[in-house]
Design a protein around this nucleic acid. Structure first.
Lengths: 325, 325
DNA sequence: GCCTAATGTGTAACCCGTTACATATATAGT
DNA sequence: ACTATATATGTAACGGGTTACACATTAGGC
C-alpha cells in the first residue's frame, strides 16, 4: 500500500500539503497541487479509510437492522437504503436480527466498536432503556419503537380502514382480520384500523380477529380455524401480503373460491402479491420510498446533527387486483 | 469513549498489559489480570476496532456482491453469508451491483480502502484483467468467473440434464428451453445440459431455445413467442424459478393448462416456486448451503492464507410439485 | 513604503490499539 | 550456587491520515 508519505516524498512536499490536496481544504499553490496530483496518479495512491476513520471517529458506514432478509418485504427496503447510502458515500451493512433482542444488542455493540455512523432499525424488541446509552444516530423504519425515536412509517391505521371500507364497498358483510404480531406497531395499527371500521357492526365479535405473526404458515392455520368457527366470513383483511398468500392457500384448501366466496385484501404491496393466483388486492406501501427517506434522514442527522428532523408517515395506495370482487 | 489508556491508568498498569489481558496473549500475573478486568468493567471499556484495524491492516469485514437483492434468489444466499460471517466475528457488507461492471469496480475500490478482509462475488462481468491487481481474498458464488477464481456452485449441467430427463419420463415429446443470460455461467451450463439431452432428437431445432435473462417479464414474452412458433411444445425447461413463474403466466395467458397441456420444470428451488399456481417443479439448489460454504471457504482463505482451498460443485435435487405431470 | 490580511507550507501531535524490545524477578535444573 | 527459562511488566514505535500551530511569503490598501 502506498501511503500519504510516499506521495509527499515523490511530490517533494509535506504530508500536510498532500492531505490538503486530497481533501481540497486550506491553501495550496496551484503548481504544488498539480505536482501532488501527478504523484498521486503515478503511485495510484488511495487514502486509507481506516486511518481516516480512526482520527475522525467516523467510519462512513451505516447499518440496517431487519428481522430477516428472506422475508420478501425487506429486500426492497434494503435495496433503497443501500442505494442512498452509496449515493452519499456510505458503506452499507446488513444485519438480520430474527427479532431477537440479544442479537440486536450484540450487533449494536459490535458496530459501535467499529465507529458506525448511523443505524436504521426495523425492530420492535428494543426498549427505550436499552437505547438510552447509545449515541449513534438512529432511526426507526416501518415500525415505531417503544422509545421516542424518529421514524419513517406508513399510515397503517388509515390504510387498514381503507382496506376494510373497500371490502364493504364491494359487498362483503362479514369481514375477518388476520392480524400481525401484537408486539409490532404496524400490526397494532392495522388491527386498530380494522376495529375502527367494524366495531359498530351488529355481526362483529372478536372471533373475527385471528392472531397471526406475519408468516405464511401461521396465517394458513389461523384462516382454516377461522373459517371453521365463522363459516359466514365473506371478506378477510390480512395484515400483510405474505400472510395474504397463506390465507389464499387456506381458502383453496377448504374448497372455497377467491374472490367469489371470500374476498381477500392484504397490506404491503410486495411483488409476491402479483404472483399468487389470484393476485392479491392490497394496500401498497411506497416501500422503496420509505427506505430512501429513512436513509436520507439518517444521513442528515449524521452530517448535520443540529438540524431538527421529524418523523414521517407516508400514504398507502389501494391496489386492486384479483382477490377482491 | 474510554480508551485503553484510561483502563491502564485505573488499573495502574501499562497499556501493554491491558492489551495482553484483552487479547489473552503473553504473560500476565493473575492478580494484575483481575485488576485490569475490574477496571474494564468499571469503565465499561470496549476496544476501538478501527484502531485495531489500522494496526493490523484487517477490518474483520467481508462483503457479498449480488446483482440485486430484490431478486428472490439472493436473500437466502445473503442470509447464509451473514450468518457465517457473524459466527466468525465478521461484519457483513452487502453490495448490489446490478450486473454493472463499473459499480463492481467502484465497490471494490471503496472496500479495499476500508481494508475489507474478503469478498464473495456473484458476478459475471468482472474480467480476469480487472482482478489481477487485487490482493483481497475473493471467491465466486453461484456463477463461475472468467478468471480462475475459486468458486462454489451447483452442478448446473447435470441438473439441467436431469430436469429434461424428468420431462421425458413424464411423457413430454417436444421440450423447449427458456435460457438465462448468455454471459452467465450457470445459464450457459443449464443450456448445455438441455442441449445434451435433446440434440439427437428428431424434432429438435434451435427454435426450441429462447433467450431469457433470468427475469420474469422477459420469460413471459419469450414464452408467448415460443408457443406461437412451436405450438406443439408440451414441456418447458426454464433456466430459473423466477422465469418459471413468467412462463406459467404466459401459458395461462394463452389459455393452455399446466401441466395438462404443457409441463414446466425450472431451476433454483426458491420459495417463490411454492406460491405460484400451479407450484413449480424444480431442480432445487442447496442455496443456504452454498452460501455457507462460500463464506466458510473465504474465511479459511483469510485466516489461513497458506491452506489450499478448492472449488466446490454441489448437487441439485429434483423437487416435484404441480407443474409437471 | 508600511502594515494587515491572505496565501502557502511544514512540523509534530493526535486518534487508539498492538507489539518488539528491554528489563526484572522468580523458578527450575544440576 | 549458578545458569537457563519462564514469568511479568513497561516503554515507545508503529499503522496512516488529519490538523493545530508556527512560520514564511505575497498581495493589497493607503
Amino acid at each position: 500500500m502506498t501511503t500519504i508519505r510516499d506521495v509527499a516524498k515523490l511530490a517533494d512536499v509535506s504530508v500536510a500539503t498532500v492531505s490538503r490536496v486530497i481533501n481540497d481544504k486550506g491553501y495550496v499553490n496551484k503548481d504544488t497541487k498539480n505536482r501532488v496530483e501527478a504523484a498521486i496518479q503515478a503511485l495510484d495512491y488511495r487514502p486509507n479509510d481506516v486511518a481516516r476513520s480512526l482520527f475522525k471517529g467516523k467510519s462512513k458506514m451505516i447499518a440496517l437492522f431487519v428481522p430477516d432478509i428472506k422475508n420478501p418485504f425487506f429486500p426492497e427496503l434494503a435495496r433503497a437504503v443501500e442505494d442512498i447510502s452509496n449515493q452519499y458515500g456510505y458503506t452499507f451493512i446488513l444485519c438480520n436480527t430474527d427479532n431477537n433482542n440479544k442479537k440486536e444488542i450484540t450487533y449494536l455493540q459490535a458496530l459501535s466498536q467499529k465507529s458506525i455512523d448511523g443505524i436504521i432499525l426495523v425492530s420492535s424488541t428494543m426498549s427505550s432503556t436499552q437505547m438510552k446509552g447509545i449515541k449513534v444516530p438512529m432511526i426507526a423504519l416501518d415500525r415505531k419503537m417503544e422509545s421516542d425515536l424518529i421514524s419513517v412509517t406508513v399510515n397503517n391505521r388509515e390504510g387498514a380502514r381503507q382496506a376494510v371500507q373497500y371490502l364493504k364497498q364491494t359487498g362483503c358483510q362479514r369481514i375477518a382480520h388476520i392480524a400481525g404480531p401484537e408486539t409490532v406497531s404496524s400490526a397494532i395499527h392495522r388491527l386498530g384500523g380494522y376495529v375502527d371500521e367494524v366495531k359498530n357492526d351488529a355481526w362483529f365479535t372478536s372471533h373475527y380477529i385471528r392472531a397471526g405473526d406475519y408468516s405464511m404458515d401461521k396465517a394458513f392455520e389461523e384462516t382454516k380455524q377461522l373459517l371453521e368457527i365463522e363459516p359466514d366470513v365473506d371478506g378477510i383483511f390480512v395484515a400483510n401480503d405474505v400472510m395474504g398468500v397463506g390465507v389464499l392457500k387456506a381458502i383453496k384448501a377448504l374448497n372455497k373460491r377467491v374472490p367469489k366466496d371470500i374476498s381477500v385484501i392484504s397490506f404491503d404491496g410486495i411483488e409476491l402479491g402479483t404472483i399468487s393466483t389470484p393476485s392479491l388486492t392490497t394496500m401498497a406501501q411506497p416501500i422503496y420510498h420509505i427506505g430512501k427517506r429513512a436513509a436520507e434522514i439518517l444521513i442528515q442527522k449524521i452530517e448535520h446533527p443540529k438540524t431538527k428532523v421529524q418523523s414521517e408517515e407516508h400514504e398507502v395506495t389501494l391496489t386492486i387486483r384479483e382477490s377482491t370482487r
